[in-house]
Design a protein around this nucleic acid. Sequence first.
DNA 1: CTGAAAGCGCTTACAG
DNA 2: CTGAAAGCGCTTACAG
Lengths: 342, 342
Amino acid sequence: MNRRSMVGLTDVARAAGVSRSTASRALRGEDRVSEETRTYVADIAASLGYVRDRRAADLASNSPTAVGLVVRSAERSFYGEIASRVQDKIDDLGMDLLMANGGDDHPAQMKALDSLIGRHLAGLIIASGRASLPAAEHAATFLPVVLVGFGSVSAAGIDTVSIDRASESIMVQAVLGEGHRHVAVTTAPADASLTLYERWTSFETFLQAGGATVVLIPHEGIGDQGIFAQALREAIEDGVTAVMCGEDPTAVQVLELLHEWGIACPGEVSVTGFDGSGTFSSPLIGLTTFQQPVRQMAKDAVDLLMARVGGLQGPAEHRVHEGELLRGRTLGPVARADDESA
Amino acid sequence: MNRRSMVGLTDVARAAGVSRSTASRALRGEDRVSEETRTYVADIAASLGYVRDRRAADLASNSPTAVGLVVRSAERSFYGEIASRVQDKIDDLGMDLLMANGGDDHPAQMKALDSLIGRHLAGLIIASGRASLPAAEHAATFLPVVLVGFGSVSAAGIDTVSIDRASESIMVQAVLGEGHRHVAVTTAPADASLTLYERWTSFETFLQAGGATVVLIPHEGIGDQGIFAQALREAIEDGVTAVMCGEDPTAVQVLELLHEWGIACPGEVSVTGFDGSGTFSSPLIGLTTFQQPVRQMAKDAVDLLMARVGGLQGPAEHRVHEGELLRGRTLGPVARADDESA
DNA sequence: CTGAAAGCGCTTACAG
DNA sequence: CTGAAAGCGCTTACAG
């Protein structure tokens, strides 16, 4: 492919026989240009294959044309769906959406954010479990930021959209309600995912408050499969009757392991997930999970952001959504003690 | 949050007592600056919270710092995983990755692409089933483009990474091998998804070549659920014994409908998918599908793109990958005629 | 090793 | 309604 050398505004102006000022105004559809000139210039531009240089345009006008979305693990249904919904909303507003992945550690996160900040976007939606608060605060000093999925960051003075903290409690009550008193909870380090960290600590707190003993099983994502499997196995052998996971993919992984080991679910061990988006909510899997109202959350995130972009001052807003317990087939009553020998 | 007014290079230079030229060179880590000056300026910049304006930097240097990735439906496992892998590769190269969704119709696609082109990226990877060839060709006149997931676009002179066209044949042979001779194929319009279009037409061709009759069931995505379900139902009542889908989510949808209708799979009707990424390949679902080597495909896409970015001329390259038939539990032998009354 | 100056491709008061 | 000119925040020959 022989690359076309970009035709610039100057080329369009010359070809149309007008000044660059007029060409610029015509192409931007300004009113103070004669209808005739406007369409003529537009035609010339189209025929020349002119594409406006957004960098230069943004730089000169000092008015951004895009909104940023930071997502980590787009392959996770929940974030992918958020991205999809946010896109729709941004489209409606006639702006562009630029997405970027978050970065795993703090330096990588800062680098990713600075790249976005340096492009001078109108605002930023951070929907990444993997995002440190300091990184978000850093970004927020430069442009409006909305955090989606985080729970307790009110202190930071950043707008948030999150799921009701009662969700974890509801989930725990469901598990306790089936008689489980010895429960495993999969964990994630706080610096890897604040969202997950808050989730599992809540699980732990509520479970203990309900009189259950809790076994923590670290789940660090890809790479620790063997360790995770072994820890899970040991927990089960030690008498755990239910496994609560902070996100659906982990729950599915647990289900697969149980299946592999020939351990019945929920006959012998119950399993719960969290998020309930996409295939994970399918009756085919039958996962007992907690469904977040993704669409509504995405809408709120964009609304909040656009309000700030529009200049809204006030204190940070925190939109809390209620989800719904999805009764699948993976949570059942704990096996009675006298069944243990069976 | 009171927004910080951006500190610019000029501020850094002044604070450091050097010229903007020197400040710029120091911050870019150029060699021709004294070690002392470099670290001093860097410290000042950090303390001032300086973030380089990428628009201005890119504009002035005429050397892009980011690569674009166009994905549609990031909530689909396959594209989400592609995005994730591409990100990793781009990170390794020290560049940024900017993602954008494709846009549904042609105008929207052009707009999305022009936004990316106008930001002068180093190159573009288009991994969107929803992307028209003309749109891709338009982009390719401006910057290096690699298409991933497309099959037969050799004519366009654009590099591609795709799955072996034999895949569809393998899938069809598996279905025929179980004795199915009356098969439904879910379809998608070419302008909505070239990838899917090529897939289902291949299915159709191979099935007919194998002596099977084919019923086409249009699947237009969200919104046509009712119509799709009805068409599927009718096809089954008309004697279809297998349903071949161009992508896993559709297959899952079919499985759910069958379940809802109390139709046994694969006892009465077999179902196959395509892609085999993420949860869709889980034994929990047991979907019979075709697994694409996503990771390898993403790597190839980035490699090809970076070669072009590096100036490689030559003709378009077409990397073809082989996938693997994933034998799940949703494809079984066709029920014998005398079983029909049962 | 450092600085003054030109320029990247646009937009936008300002003046007509 | 249109044009000449200044400027957005950087980088980079060019000259020292």
